[in-house]
Amino acid sequence: MRRQLELVVNGEARRLELEDQRSLLSVLRDDLGLYGAKYGCGEGHCGACTVLVDGVPRRSCTTQVGTVAGKEITTVEGLEHDGKLHPVQQAFLEEEAFQCGYCTCGMIMGACGLLRRNPRPTAAQIRTFLDGHLCRCGTYQRIVAAVQRASRLLQGAQP
C-alpha cells in the first residue's frame, strides 16, 4: 500500500511516500541514493544487504520498508564520524579483508552488530555470527582477523 512513511536513516529523519511492502534495500538504494547495501540474493542468505535497525543487523532485502518506519536505520554511509573511519572500517582496511569488495559493506555492518552485542568475540563466535554472510572471493580468514582487530581498536577507543 502506498503511504507516507518516516524513516530515520543515519540519524536523519526522511519523509517518503511509497509502497510499504517494498524492500528496505530498494528504498535505501533507489530512493535515498545510499548504495553501500548491496543486492546479492534477495532471500537473506548472503548478507550483502545488511544494515543495522536499532543497532541490530537486518537483511534489508527481506525487510519490508513499512516495518521499520520510525526505527533507527544505520547504513555503512553512516559509520564515519568527523571524517574518521569507524574502527570496523579501519580494521577491514588494515587487514585488507576483501577482494572484489561487493560483500564488504554488509560484512562491516554485520561486524558492527556483533561488536555491539559482544565487544570481545572469539574467532569461533565471529564465524558463527557472520555465517549468514557470503564472501565468494573467500577472504573469510581475513574478515575474522579484521573483526578481531576492530574489537581491539574499539577497546582502545572506549577505555
Binding site: G36, E80, L85, F98, T104, I108
Partner: peptide, 21 residues
C-alpha cells in the same frame, strides 16, 4: 602495496555497475 581503492570499498563509496545512477 595496499589495494589502491580500498577506502572506497570500506566506505561504500565505490560504485559497482548496479550502483550507477
Amino acid at each position: 602495496v595496499k589495494k589502491v581503492n580500498a577506502l572506497q570499498i570500506v566506505t561504500g563509496k565505490h560504485r559497482y555497475t548496479s550502483d550507477v545512477q
